[in-house]
């Protein structure tokens, strides 16, 4: 064989054959069934749990629980299918058509319809934490499948518990139970009183109103003076934010809470009789928070302080700030449900 022009054979063969290139995009491209083209959502099954948003490596997905929308930045999506693999309701899938290229960044938003009626036959729309029936064999499958690890099962001790604060109400446990012994909400066995989706008000409430402030749908009303606490069961979406916000862990979701708990355990709480207000203000250095009238010693400011500069003692009705540690960020002022703090200037 010759040592020069060895490629001539292939070149001439190519010359007389059809070109291998296609006239994409005028000729559409053929994808395989497995192609990871774009993320597709089945809006009917989505529960807005936000797992996809938390997992997305390129932060392309936004789940807005208030507005009930699921949005994806199409140009930011890297088609890795991490969201698809982690969706507890399997409502996401990979379609095999790539999103069309364009000159602008596109964000697609989908409305997630509210669920009508809910899972249980009981009234009020079904509670959003699972309830265990009698057939449970403590196999622990529900605990394994729970995407937020809210269920604890002990086979030996025959115990089953759900952390209402962590539960996002996705219902994966219900679907995964081999004995079909879990239901969302009250079910048949639960007392009617607890069939509401709303949080239940237990002992120890100081009417600080933190729950009302944190409720995304403004379903809770708290009156600190009148010592009343009420929830509008119709508006409540059962997200459980109030439960996790309450500094005294007074609230719980659904039937697991003591339904018989007296709603208005009106503890005699003196409002902050922090009488020597001006004296305190004058003594404190500038740029630290100052306590005004109305403090109920709920302790939210102490909890929220990023440097742990505030100490609150509810029993002793004491409130103090360590001026050296305080970094003047104002988080306490913003977090006080009674708006009884301000920065000293």
């Amino acid at each position: 064989m010759s040592k020069v022009l060895r490629f001539a054979g292939t070149a001439m063969k190519n010359f007389f054959s059809k070109p291998v290139t296609t006239k994409y995009p005028f000729v559409p491209c053929e994808y395989t069934p497995a192609t990871r083209g774009r993320v597709v959502i089945d809006v009917d099954n989505c529960v807005l749990c936000g797992s996809c948003m938390r997992h997305c490596p390129s932060l392309a997905i936004t789940v807005d629980r208030d507005k009930r929308t699921w949005s994806i930045q199409r140009m930011g999506c890297i088609q890795c299918a991490d969201c698809v693999n982690n969706c507890p309701k399997n409502c996401l899938s990979m379609g095999n058509q790539y999103f069309e290229p364009g000159t602008e960044k596109v964000e697609e938003s989908f409305e997630i319809p509210a669920k009508a009626g809910g899972a249980s036959a009981g009234g009020g729309g079904g509670a959003n934490i699972p309830v265990k029936g009698d057939d449970c064999v403590y196999c622990g499958l529900c605990a394994k499948k729970c995407p937020v690890e809210a269920i604890t099962v002990d086979r030996a001790a025959k115990s089953w518990a759900v952390d209402a604060g962590a539960c996002v109400g996705c219902g994966t446990c219900v679907d995964s139970c081999p004995k079909k012994c879990l239901t969302m909400g009250g079910g048949e066995a639960a007392p009617a009183a607890a069939a509401s989706p709303a949080p239940v008000h237990g002992d120890g409430c100081v009417y600080c109103g933190a729950c009302a402030g944190s409720c995304p749908v403004a379903a809770i009303t708290v009156d600190g003076d009148a010592k009343t606490w009420a929830v509008d069961a119709g508006s409540c979406v059962g997200c459980g934010t109030c439960v996790s916000t309450c500094p005294n862990e007074v609230l719980s979701m659904g039937a697991a809470a003591a339904a018989a708990a007296a709603p208005a355990a009106a503890k005699a709480v003196d409002p902050a009789a922090a009488a020597a207000q001006a004296a305190i203000e004058a003594d404190l250095p500038a740029d630290v928070p100052v306590q005004l009238d109305g403090c109920v010693y709920c302790g939210v400011c102490a909890k929220k302080c990023p440097v742990d500069a505030i100490t609150v003692d509810r029993e002793a009705k004491a409130w103090a700030v360590d001026a050296d540690t305080c970094v003047n960020c104002g988080t306490c002022v913003a977090s006080c449900p009674k708006k009884c703090l301000k920065m000293n200037d």
Binding site: Y31, T32, A34, T35, I78, Q79, C80, A81
Partner: peptide, 9 residues
């Protein structure tokens, strides 16, 4: 693409 869904990644 046929086996994993992606040509490059």
């Amino acid at each position: 693409e046929a086996s994993t869904g992606g040509r490059v990644v």
